[in-house]
Write a protein that binds this DNA or RNA. Sequence first.
DNA 1: TATTGTTATACTCTATAACTATA
DNA 2: TATAGTTATAGAGTATAACAATA
Lengths: 144, 144
Amino acid sequence: MDDDSDFDLKDFLPYLLNQAADVSSHGFQEYYKSKYGMLRTEWRVVFHLGRYGTLTAKEICARALIHKTKVSRAVAALEQKRFLRRKEMPDDRRHESLDLTATGRRVFDDLVVEAERYDKHLVASFSEADRAVLRRCLIQIADL
Amino acid sequence: MDDDSDFDLKDFLPYLLNQAADVSSHGFQEYYKSKYGMLRTEWRVVFHLGRYGTLTAKEICARALIHKTKVSRAVAALEQKRFLRRKEMPDDRRHESLDLTATGRRVFDDLVVEAERYDKHLVASFSEADRAVLRRCLIQIADL
DNA sequence: TATTGTTATACTCTATAACTATA
DNA sequence: TATAGTTATAGAGTATAACAATA
């Protein structure tokens, strides 16, 4: 048994990444779930509309790297919550342009403030240099 | 719209962590899933038994931070694949000691080699210093 | 025929409660 | 009553195929 290497799960990057992702997701998820009853894909759709303005579902798919079926369901849920509006585009009625409502925009503003606060909290104990290394490595691994 | 901050999803650590975790998980998952038909919890149970020897389900729960219902199902699946054996403990028949079979041990050995190879591949382009920062930050965020 | 978006289905993962059997 | 482990169930995430409406 001891002729196996010392390899431990804490040395295994996918394990570390998953644990860290879980912990960090839960902290923020708690906020948008309890306050607005939103799921993760819904928060990401709201984010894209709030940050980049009017988009079609297809554009959200492309920007956010989310599959069209997930976007379709998130849009339906957000419409029901009155956080966004659809508008058929007259030039091509297969497209619908999507926009946040006034309510949706307030939700976006609130979530962005909270997201920034939460992000700062997560890296509060790291040096500026370490933060830069962390983000650069993650972006490379995620191939973003 | 432009009076909002420049906050972008790529600045949001939970997003980066999730993307990186997804990418890194999939690469390794493909290996144990296609080769042995295993799920993630099964791989983690095999890992703990291979690395630390005979354990009860409860000990695996404590070490691996997995809930007992997930361990229970993973153990049942691994038993069916003949990767592990159960043995009732005579002193307290509520406990069962779990052990890898010879087949299970071969699977473990193979997966550990692959895991080490995969881990090296993930960080291949990072400096030694950056790797250390990355692991330290992840361990701290995951609170391990 | 190709494209936008929806619906259906299935599988994985997570979380919790209720249960069995032992102690 | 408390503990080890199982079963049931539901919610959430992921993936794919089939479909309707439009172009």
